[in-house]
C-alpha cells in the first residue's frame, strides 16, 4: 500500500515513489534530494503539530505537512 509522507509516524521510514505537486515547491523538494528512490526516515513532528522533520540523504530536512503531501512513498523492502 502506498502511503503519503505526511501520514508517516515518527521513526517510520520508506522509499520515495513519486513527487507530485508543481512549481517551486516540487523543484525545491527534488533539489533537496527528495527524488524517487531516495530513502526517507520520519524523525519528529514540531510541537504545534506541523511542520515535520525527516532524514534524507544523510541530513535533517524540515518541511510542512502540506508539502509532505506531495511525496508519495512506498515500503522499503531492504529494511
Amino acid at each position: 500500500m502506498d502511503k503519503i509522507l505526511s501520514q508517516y509516524r515518527s521513526g517510520e521510514s520508506g522509499i520515495v515513489k513519486q513527487v507530485s505537486g508543481a512549481g517551486a515547491i516540487r523543484r525545491r523538494l527534488l533539489d533537496m534530494g527528495v527524488t524517487p528512490g531516495a530513502r526517507i526516515t520520519m524523525r519528529k513532528v514540531a510541537p504545534l503539530g506541523d511542520p515535520i522533520e525527516v532524514t534524507v540523504r544523510g541530513y535533517e530536512l524540515t518541511l510542512r505537512k502540506a508539502e509532505a503531501d506531495c511525496v508519495v512513498m512506498k515500503e522499503d523492502n531492504n529494511a
Partner: peptide, 12 residues
Amino acid sequence: GETAPFIMELPA
C-alpha cells in the same frame, strides 16, 4: 501568491 515553501535544512 503561492505560499512560499518551507523546505529547509536543519543544519548540525
